[in-house]
């Protein structure tokens, strides 16, 4: 089965919003960074915006942009992934509850704290009564959303789906996650992440909406042929081989392997194993040096892979080796979260 990427809206720490192709990369020396936000008043009226936290404004803006780019007017499904939902409002409610000893709490922050409020506000904004769902599976939340869309396409339940990955990194959550060693102790800049030999990565945030359709049009980026989610696979190399053969592909057919490496030695080791065992002679690229790491950073990975295919090149700053990516006919995107949850996405040029 092929599902076509008809539009992408991407708000990130790069200048990706409403850009055609790859923008000039922005490199960061500071370890805590926020998205390069557009002017939201172009997408959301002041009366709608007044209760929205950053992550929701971004989600609406990226969703609207991706719809405008596609030829779909009303998606048959709105499916979102988010690791932490509107953590900003969750923190506001939580802090007030603790500080005020359960008094004078504001309903707005509670309402906005539910993870599904992002998907639901997209639906309210679009007046879309169709299938609506929210996945919250840590670092593979976006892939879980994509996987459900795929199931609905395979079942002929839908002909289009708006799939998104949305997460924000608040200052306090950045600090909290720092306690458990997610970020680098000594950050040497996002441009130097690939040479890193230490644990921890570079934090990011982002909002990526993708319009998938069973039909392709002249603007289609690429096709997605298969998505797979694996939990604690016993042998990931074998799992990838099975995945490829189930989709009538051999390792030789893959022109580019896009990997969710993030500069954390504990995270990156398995990619090196996969690469050495399976794809030694193939071109490799990554994207988390551009997006930073966050729960739904694979959304950015999808944008990256789709643009490589559409524009027929791999930007040098994202290449992990000097192998030629050939015609960029077949691209495999691999991601994992804490060596437990793995996702495989197979793209092809159309």
């Amino acid at each position: 089965m092929k599902v076509y990427i008809q539009g992408i809206g991407n708000i990130s720490i790069q200048n990706t919003f409403r850009q055609t192709g790859f923008p000039e990369p922005v490199w960061y020396n500071e370890s805590y960074v926020r998205c390069i936000d557009p002017d939201f008043t172009n997408y959301i009226s002041p009366n709608e915006a007044r209760r929205m936290s950053k992550v929701i404004k971004r989600a609406i803006a990226s969703a609207k942009t991706c719809i405008a780019e596609s030829s779909v007017e009303m998606p048959d499904a709105v499916i979102s992934g988010t690791g932490l939902g509107c953590i900003e409002d969750t923190e506001k409610f939580l802090s007030a509850m603790i500080d005020n000893d359960e008094k004078f709490l504001q309903p707005t922050f509670f309402i906005q704290s539910t993870h599904n409020t992002i998907s639901s506000q997209i639906a309210i904004n679009l007046k879309c009564n169709n299938h609506n769902n929210t996945f919250v599976q840590g670092g593979i939340s976006f892939e879980c959303a994509l996987f459900e869309a795929f199931i609905l396409f395979a079942d002929n339940k839908i002909k289009s789906a708006l799939v998104g990955g949305y997460d924000e990194m608040t200052p306090s959550y950045f600090r909290i996650l720092n306690r458990i060693g997610l970020w680098k102790k000594k950050f040497e800049g996002s441009g130097n992440l690939s040479n890193s030999t230490t644990p921890g990565t570079f934090a990011g945030e982002g909002s990526v909406s993708v319009m998938l359709s069973s039909a392709k049009n002249e603007k289609t980026y690429a096709a997605i042929e298969a998505v797979e989610i694996l939990y604690q696979p016993e042998n990931i190399v074998e799992s990838i081989e099975t995945f490829l053969s189930r989709n009538s592909k051999k390792t030789e057919d893959i022109d580019l392997v896009v990997m969710g490496m993030n500069g954390d030695v504990k995270n990156d080791a398995i990619y090196k194993t996969i690469s050495a065992d399976m794809f030694g002679a193939k071109a490799h690229a990554w994207y988390k040096n551009l997006s930073g790491e966050y729960f739904t950073s694979t959304g950015f990975g999808l944008w990256f892979a789709a643009n490589c295919i559409k524009h027929k090149y791999v930007p040098s700053y994202a290449a992990l080796n000097s192998h030629n990516a050939g015609k960029l006919q077949n691209v495999l995107l691999l991601n994992h979260y804490q060596n437990k949850n793995f996702s495989l996405i197979l793209f092809s040029a159309c």
């Binding site: 009366n47 209760r51 004078f104 709490l105 504001q106 309903p107 707005t108 309402i111």
Partner: peptide, 15 residues
């Protein structure tokens, strides 16, 4: 253009 959530916010303000 206020709605039911705003009414709840104003109730908190009153208290």
């Amino acid at each position: 253009g206020l709605d039911s959530i705003d009414a709840l916010e104003l109730i908190v303000l009153l208290e």
